[in-house]
Structure formats: C-alpha cells, structure tokens
Amino acid sequence: MLLTTENLGKRYQRRDVSVDALRDVNLEIQENAFVAVTGPSGSGKTTLLLTLAGLLKPTAGRIRFRDTQLEGFSDAQWASFRHKNLGFVMQNFSLVPYLSARENVTLPLVIAGSKGKQQKTRALELLERVGLGDRADHLPRELSAGQQQRVAIARALANEPALVLADEPTGNLDPALANDVLKLLGDLNAEHGTAILMVTHSPEAARAGTHRVHIEAGCVVEAAAQPA
C-alpha cells in the first residue's frame, strides 16, 4: 500500500468555535492508483490533501507512507519527504513568474541539489512529454492557462514522485483544456505508474480517476473503484 490513513482528523479553532475539517478519515491508496476526491465546497477535500502533504498538521490519527509513519515528522522531515516523494499540481498553477517553463520544471531538482546539466536534460524531456518542448524558454505569462498547467504537471513529475497531489487541476481551465490536462494525468498514471490523488468538485473530472472518494463534512462517505 502506498498511503494509509487511520482515523485522521483535523480540527481548526476559529475564535471560540472548533471546526472539524476532517473526522476519522480512513483511506488506502494503492501504488499506481488515480484517486479522485470529490465533495461539495467546504467538505474538507483540500484540507485532506494538505494534511497528507504535511502542509497542515493533523490533530488526530495516523498517516503511513509505505513503511514510514509520517504524523510525527518535524518540519524539516516533511520538507525532505515532499521533495523526494510528492509532486504537486495546483488550481492556480503555482509557477514562479520570473522563471522560464524549463526553470520552473527544474525547481524540484534544484531543491534536491541535482547538477545543472541533469536538471536541463530532465526538464526538456518532461516538457517534450507534455507537448511544450518548443516553449521551454517562455515565461509563464507567455503561456496559455492550459500550457501553464502542463508545465506544472511536468514540474510535478521532475523528481519522479510516487504520488502526485492535484488540487482542482482543471478548476481554471475551459472544458477542452480541462480534458487535455485530465488525459495527460491519466496517461502519466498509466505510463509511469505514478499514483495521483486529485481533489475536484467536478463530476466530469472525477471520472478520470480509477478510484473515487467522496467526502462530506470532513467524513469519507464513499470510497470505491470506478469502472474504466
């Protein structure tokens, strides 16, 4: 099993009111899975994703990644875990505006301390894969929204992560571009065996996943494999 959560909980304290964003979430994500997490706004989808990435600290429960328990990790351990095992694709693309497409893709390799030539080769290879080989030197503002999201996907794969966390990756794209991005994620999942956990409120996007988890009010109300 790639990732397992046991009774995972996240409680926010807002003034004098406690809000349970996640309650007793039990999940099992297999290697190579493409999991679509759906649910209405405010149901805790993004909180789940952030907690699994160590960007929010859980207030209850356990997280295991392969054979490693993560919930007690320090900030530095989480940082190291992220750059070794995770890739990110965000709704707002999260590209650094003054870096070219190639340089954005190399960022995980920069953090890992890879050599310059290795960074360049890998970034160009990934940009070719997402169909942007000829846009390597373009800045994000010189690319369309769909192209920016493809750069973000290439960046998410740069460090060959076991799991890509995607938060509403099609949220800012029109339907045609959204389909392109979903197809790309599906292809990468199939070709490289990279597991994907995608948060989406779109039922159409959710159908791209091999598995579906539905959350309401912080609780998993449904988890099932989807027909191909």
């Binding site: 960007l55 940082a79 992220r82 999260s94 960022l107 995980p108 953090i111």
Partner: peptide, 10 residues
C-alpha cells in the same frame, strides 16, 4: 510558498 511546498527547507 511554492518553494516550501516543493520541499525547500526553511
């Protein structure tokens, strides 16, 4: 924030 998300240490 992006760099931190990608795993850069403080």
């Amino acid at each position: 924030g992006i760099l931190r998300m990608l795993g850069a240490r403080r």
